[in-house]
Design a binder for these strands. Structure first.
Lengths: 330, 330
DNA sequence: CTGTTAGCGCTTTCAA
DNA sequence: TTGAAAGCGCTAACAG
């Protein structure tokens, strides 16, 4: 079902059909009617691909993610809600298909889509700096806070500080940390918050208590297994995100370690699963919906030419105490 | 940054670059190296749009949704998880931008994307029957169970029956129902389950207790307001989905009606919000992740030519009793 | 082994 | 008011 089929059926040229479909001037009313009736009868819709190749704008905004996991799904809801009434449609693209290295996926995705399919992009957790992009871009939880595109993130260092402070306040001294993805700024900031808290409490930093977490459930699981079976296991774990915290919970369960009786666990993000697992996860909440919504608003602003320059929005993060934290067993 | 730029920089023809990039035979090693070095230096990636226009396959599967709301986001996670390792990339498209009628949105989206951008599509809650599609299609929670494409859904009638049976079992007699989207089969089935339960319990059907819910929070809210301020308010509400159930909770809260003390509420779907609101929502859980995963597997099967014909998978739904249900006040 | 050419579906000048 | 033709970026058939 192409424009050529419609043109043939209506007995006019392809160009005329294009004009009718796009509401251009210079078409006789009778012709307009005839073409339109054929269009509705055949159910023709202009191909996004073909028209985007020729045209400048598509009115489609791309949300580029590595994967559709809980974190990006939450952001997506926020982006989606904010997109209503803006006249833009949304296209979410998961561009990392296990082949090749994850680092740089957003460059590939953006190159493949920008300039043609999408008018602008929201990059979720991009891993590299992209100085020159062909379309407006807003990054959520980016590699680095400055120099690149406009960014949105939550208070990573403050959130991590609050989480660790809380663990200290209820009596923990041996507090482990599961690192995030080392290619993301958020990961370093959360570690920094963790360290700052220990230092403020006068607790010496023990490198043996810091392990990779990678923001992934399986990695969190594996590292926790190592931690708990070591000579001097921690009494609490602060994981750089909820997914790896859930992995820690998995490992504790596997070893028969009671949470929070023998081990406290704190995550970061507050994805939906955090409040539905049992026991419910204590975590640092980021306003994910709002972050998505603000990203969309910033991008639409840029697309509409509100030249407000590079923006960097920092949203608040708040500790949510649930059921995976308790004073250490003595 | 187009293929022409690369060709120019490498001093070869566009066709040669294409061959190198796509790993075709018939390129001298020296040429290959030179072109490749230019490609990496310039960071060139082939445009998905342009290549899809010319080529047959794109290795991209489209997930077509009206909107990124909790229900479709959960499905998306399941689809995403199942897509790993299949060699397909995922593209989720939200095609309904408030302009024009919602009914038929999937036809428009599919026409715009199919044949060029995507090799196959997963349609989430499609509203019309689509007899002839240009690409393989799997529908989740479709308009109608038979005759169209392959489908996935959960036990709607059994779930609704279980929900209403439970309300009856704890003593409710005046049980209202918030309808779903009338263009979806699931909505009718859930109403049928509700009615069957009433009949089995010997409770007369009262049309005044059935109101529109539309699967939306705001509609659920409005209808509940009407219900609760009427002459003979219900003691329980079975909403056709969680979103409208949350709307009912909003309304009850607004009127100072205690849930579950003065009003019981049951939803359907078990979206993440159901277990994180307060009080936590009693609901009928659908295995959303699994539904998404199965949809992807079915579609990949079709794309790979496993001609197993039209499939119709029915998954189980289970009542999850939480905190919004209690015996009626006397 | 390399380049020329045609064409995917569409929009947009520009002539007729 | 209409249509012919060029071209968006790319791939594939075919010459050279």
């Amino acid at each position: 079902m192409t424009i050529t089929d419609v043109a043939k059926a209506a007995g006019v040229s392809v160009a005329t059909v294009s004009k009718v479909v796009n509401g251009r001037y210079g078409v006789a009313p009778a012709t307009y009617e005839r073409v339109m009736s054929v269009v509705t009868e055949l159910g023709y819709e202009t191909s996004l691909v073909a028209s985007s190749l020729r045209r400048r704008r598509t009115n489609v905004i791309g949300v580029l993610v590595t994967d559709f996991e809980p974190y990006s799904a939450e952001l997506l809801k926020g982006v989606g809600a904010a997109a209503h009434g803006t006249g833009y449609e949304l296209l979410a693209y998961a561009g990392w298909t296990t082949e090749g290295p994850a680092v740089g996926w957003e460059k590939r995705s953006l190159s493949r889509l920008a300039g043609t399919l999408i008018d602008g992009a929201i990059l979720v957790t991009p891993t590299v700096l992209m100085p020159d992009t062909s379309v407006p871009v807003v990054a959520i939880d980016p590699h680095t806070g400055r120099g690149g595109p406009s960014t949105i993130d939550a208070d990573n260092i403050g959130g991590a500080r609050a989480a660790t402070d809380y663990l200290v306040s209820i009596g923990h001294r041996r507090i482990a940390h599961l690192l995030g993805r080392v290619d993301l700024e958020s990961s370093h900031l959360r570690e920094a918050g963790y360290r700052a808290s220990l230092e403020a409490a006068g607790i010496g930093f023990d490198p043996g208590l810091v392990r990779e977490g990678d923001y992934r459930r399986s990695t969190g699981h594996d590292s926790t297994l190592v931690l708990l079976t070591g000579p001097e296991p921690p009494t609490a774990i602060f994981a750089a995100n909820d997914l790896s915290a859930l992995g820690a919970l998995d490992a504790a369960h596997e070893l028969g370690v009671d949470v929070p009786g023998q081990l406290s666990v704190v995550g970061f993000d507050d994805i939906p699963d955090a409040s539905s697992v049992s026991p419910r996860l204590t975590t640092v909440a980021q306003p994910l919906h709002e972050m998505g919504a603000q990203a969309l608003q910033m991008l639409v602003g840029q697309l509409n030419g509100d030249d407000s320059g590079r923006l960097h929005h920092h949203l608040r993060s708040t500790l949510v105490v649930r059921e995976t934290t308790a004073p250490p067993a003595r």
